[in-house]
């Protein structure tokens, strides 16, 4: 069984935000939030590096561990999803997540925190696949359609990869070997805790 993973190759990421708008486009992300961010370190200086970050779909997901209503589940492919009907928008998962992935759309006026929203690896949520309800609540379910997350599929430089962890790491490993450098992809260790 595949284990779905994102990997952002910082040697290729150019901070073009294609992943961010692709995600907005595909998932109709609520106004005011982005499920994916491009973060730049050392902005404007030598050694500047950018990396595109969203939910890393951790093997041992800290968000799920702390959720007071247990609305998280992990699919067979290792995608971490949640049930918005259970979510109470408490914000605890935001603190637990090392990547700041969970977001809370401002539901009404006066900043009431809405149900948590985060990257679904384009796999929707616990509603009938590719139904209108699923789309409106979670966004498009590409996995069910046999496709992969649009952010990675549209990445300008193929820096962001999304798919089975073994295939992804194989591509990345080849690139690193070609470049003769060492792997420096951010977040890889967290997402793959000590490959048991």
């Amino acid at each position: 069984m595949a284990r779905m993973k994102f990997l952002c190759d910082t040697e290729r990421c150019i901070e073009c935000n294609g992943c961010v708008t692709a995600c907005n486009n595909e998932n109709n992300v609520p106004w005011g939030i982005n499920r994916r961010h491009v973060v730049t370190l050392g902005d404007g200086r030598r050694g500047e590096k950018s990396v595109s970050v969203a939910c890393m779909h951790c093997t041992d997901a800290p968000c799920a561990a702390v959720c007071p209503v247990d609305c998280f589940y992990t699919t067979e492919d290792g995608i971490v999803l949640h049930d918005k009907d259970l979510c109470i928008g408490c914000g605890y998962c935001f603190y637990a997540c090392p990547f700041g992935a969970p977001q809370y759309p401002q539901q009404e006026a006066f900043g009431v925190r809405g149900k948590m929203d985060k990257c679904t690896f384009c796999a929707g949520g616990p509603l009938p696949d590719n139904s209108k309800e699923e789309f409106l609540k979670y966004g498009r379910n590409r996995i069910a359609e046999g496709k992969l997350p649009l952010c990675a599929e549209m990445c300008a430089t193929k820096a962001l990869l999304a798919g089975d962890g073994t295939v992804v790491s194989e591509i990345y490993r080849k690139r690193v070997m070609k470049r003769g450098g060492r792997p420096d992809a951010l977040g890889w260790q967290t997402a793959y805790p000590a490959e048991k």
Binding site: A65, C71, Y73, D83, A123, G124, P126, D129, N141, I143
Partner: peptide, 11 residues
């Protein structure tokens, strides 16, 4: 803790 309480995902 972390036992999913929501509805089943057909996926």
């Amino acid at each position: 803790p972390a036992r999913y309480m929501g509805s089943m995902d057909p996926l």
